[in-house]
Design a protein around this nucleic acid. Structure first.
Lengths: 232, 232
DNA sequence: CTTTATTGTGTCCGCCGGACACAGATTGGA
DNA sequence: TCCAATCTGTGTCCGGCGGACACAATAAAG
């Protein structure tokens, strides 16, 4: 499975010319997922976008899971560069870039869940994140864990904020929250802290992403400063 | 959809006695998901565990999505209590409890993704989290955002750590990471920071959960302390 | 021109969620 | 007591999914 992600397969010498390419298949899949959501990406649907039938796709890809991996890594693209920033500003920019990536392809939030092989583009994102911390006194493990926390936060907020095309039963953000608020208001003494926090919430803006990001960066700064002082 | 989660439906007066109950169905589903993973939970499979056929389930539940919501909220259970702790210790305990909940039912990580109705148990968890912050100088919105960051971290680490039964192609943690390490080692100058961080990683323990948790709590503490000083 | 490797197609299978008609059970009212 | 209303469970059918497999068409190497 990892091979498909990292290798550029050679065109064979014998036999008929392939009608499509692996990257062409992946691009078609991305187009579908962007427009209609990840659930709309089926082998049939992909083949309909290309001059081949469904079964021909299996000449290029061993199965659907591998195809999803390829299209996911391709859609991630390469991370933007931000030279000359402090570690904090660099991580801030990195997180924002990642968030925008998820906004551009919301289905990536669903296709990149759990244990899975990592492709070159995802590795490049990881590298850029670690690059920001390379000058600090953090150990390699701590650098990894820091990036993990940040990426987790970006994913969490993107998942909460970004709307997906074809997202199940068309539940809007507002429908869910108002229904929830109604249930809480129905008996507030069952969820006292929740009810209290919600009443003090009326008409306030949703700042979740930057709030959490600043808290995490603050926390990292505390640790990094401690290390610097100890080194003296 | 919210109704199923919050209401306790009355048994009807006329007609034959129902052979099963909604909670019985949900419990059977949980049993399957625990043992064989979320993908193994199909209407057929659930009915096979109960003295009814597949179609009878639709008398109790409008569709599979709603059933997943019910079983998810049920599996979450009620959060443990930790009276008399500081906000920091309370949030630490809350996060650890949540992590253990995800460890007990790993499929919850998959079934509780994205925009969805919130049930009473999940509301209770949220309430307990907010309760820890109720005594601080944070606004309601900040309290929500803080809990969101924490829960996101717990989810991220659980997703990375916990192994799921029936998890796709049986990829072990080790298989994936060694394959990844091989690709990075193949040309280290393509991912310099990544390669550097990985070499300094050899044989070190995985502390991701507590590391990130401490950083987030540190960051929250910075903000809360600032508020306290300003209030004076 | 034949051999050989490779691609694309059509057919088939099991499984999924779900719509729908229908039979059996139970109870309330006449 | 009997009937009508109401509710439950079953069987059948549908479209769509991922994928196994056999087979024909194609192109290059010998």
């Amino acid at each position: 499975m990892t091979e498909l992600l990292w290798s550029t397969p050679q065109p064979p010498s014998r036999g008929p010319k392939p009608a499509v390419t692996l990257s062409g298949i992946a691009e078609a899949s991305i187009r579908i997922a962007d427009a209609e959501g990840l659930d709309a990406v089926s082998m049939q649907r992909i083949a309909a976008e290309l001059p081949v039938t469904k079964m021909a796709l299996y000449r290029y890809v061993p199965g659907k899971a591998e195809l999803i991996a390829v299209m996911s890594d391709l859609a991630m693209g390469t991370p933007p560069e931000h030279p000359g920033l402090t570690w904090r500003d660099a991580l801030h920019a990195w997180s924002t870039d990642l968030f925008q990536g998820f906004s551009k392809h919301p289905w990536l939030l669903l296709s990149t869940i759990g244990r899975r092989p990592i492709g070159p583009n995802e590795a490049a994102w990881l590298d850029r994140g670690l690059q920001a911390l390379a000058g600090t006194a953090l150990t390699g493990g701590e650098q990894f864990d820091s990036i993990l926390v940040l990426s987790g936060h970006v994913r969490t907020l993107a998942l909460q904020t970004v709307s997906m095309p074809g997202g199940s039963t068309g539940l809007t953000e507002e429908t869910v929250t108002t229904a929830f608020a109604t249930m809480i208001a129905a008996d507030p003494e069952r969820f006292p802290s929740l009810a209290a926090a919600m009443t003090s919430l009326e008409g306030s803006e949703n700042q979740g992403f930057s709030f959490g990001l600043d808290r995490i960066l603050d926390g990292l700064e505390v640790l990094i400063q401690t290390r610097v002082k100890r080194d003296r």
